[in-house]
């Protein structure tokens, strides 16, 4: 190997280890880890702490693998959107083939290891989640319909259900409602983002609601989703994972979320342009806190239960 050949390979993108980690979308993974852990800890019954840790790790790796598959397929639009231009593939540090290999390998690894460590219901749900995100959302819905984020949101909603299944080997009303919480939260969360990421989706040809139906309609949709979300979030309080702490948190947060949706609905584009989409950005940031605190409250109820304090 000559110096010249080394230089050529450097230009073609010789990645650092961190670039492969970035393929797994670590920030999304943190949400997956947290909600899966809450689902696991809130479930009736118990598993060995090591198996619980191992199961959450497998769910996180599975989520990361679907992120790598997403980056492999979406490399063309990631190159166009400002928000995603720094990702490992568009920036030239990792090739598409490498991302595909990482995604497929980690998908298989995470599903098999979760099945061996816990049970095959949880492993099956994880496999379906990866398939849903990589194939149904990324390859099909994302470029086809403005409802992409509505249906695709299911992929991010599965982790608490998988965590629950890792303990019980089953699907229950509580795990379906935890799924529903993230599922109904996803559209207003991403539409708020789409409102202030002005031209990104349009430039990339992604049919986000803001592009296909306009901003006024998107604002109406954000507001409209806060109602079924509030009903479901508060309803979860009256199941076995809920309790007074969760109910208090859910009522306050949903009142604020509906109010935030109303504030977004009332605004028009000139007003938003004038203050740099201040309200929309604040609503997007609050939506992250909203989800974190709901699952945090479920976790608090579960943590207090052994002392007879959590739950009803």
């Amino acid at each position: 190997m000559t110096d010249a050949s080394i230089q050529t390979r450097t230009d073609s993108g010789d990645a650092q280890f961190g670039d492969y980690v970035a393929l797994l979308k670590p920030r999304v993974m943190s949400l997956v880890v947290f909600t899966a852990a809450v689902g696991l800890l809130a479930a009736p019954g118990s598993v060995h702490p090591f198996i619980a840790f191992f199961a959450v790790l497998c769910i996180a790796i599975g989520g990361g693998a679907s992120g790598a598959l997403n980056m492999w397929y979406d490399a063309d639009i990631d190159l166009i959107m400002k928000r995603t231009q720094g990702r490992p593939i568009p920036s030239g540090r990792v090739t598409r083939e490498e991302a595909l290999a990482v995604g497929l390998t980690l998908s298989g690894f995470s599903v098999v290891m979760l099945g061996l460590a816990s049970n095959w219901v949880a492993a099956g749900l994880l496999a379906f989640t990866i398939f849903f995100y990589a194939v149904i959302y990324t390859m099909w819905l994302k470029r086809w319909t403005p409802q992409n984020i509505v249906i695709g949101g299911a992929a991010g909603a599965f982790p608490p259900m998988i965590g629950w299944a890792a303990v019980t080997g089953d699907i229950a009303l509580e795990s379906v409602l935890m799924f529903g919480l993230t599922f109904l939260w996803t559209p207003p969360h991403f539409w708020a983002l789409a409102l202030f990421m002005k031209s990104d989706y349009k430039d990339a040809g992604v049919p986000m609601l803001t592009v296909t139906h306009g901003r006024k309609t998107t604002r109406r949709h954000v507001f409209a989703y806060t109602f079924p979300l509030a009903v479901l979030a508060i309803g979860l309080a009256f199941t076995s994972v809920g309790g007074p702490i969760y109910l208090t948190v859910a009522v306050i947060l949903n009142a604020l979320f509906v109010k935030g949706g109303w504030d977004i609905l009332r605004r028009d584009e000139p007003t938003s342009e004038a203050d740099g989409y201040k309200v929309e950005k604040r609503y997007f940031a609050f939506s992250l806190l909203y989800l974190f605190l709901h699952f945090g409250a479920i976790l608090a109820e579960a943590a207090l239960r052994p002392w007879g304090l959590g739950g009803w």
């Binding site: 010789d14 650092q16 280890f17 980690v21």
Partner: peptide, 9 residues
């Protein structure tokens, strides 16, 4: 970069 990759792996 190769060292970082090998160490990480």
């Amino acid at each position: 970069r190769r060292w970082s990759r090998n160490l990480g792996l």
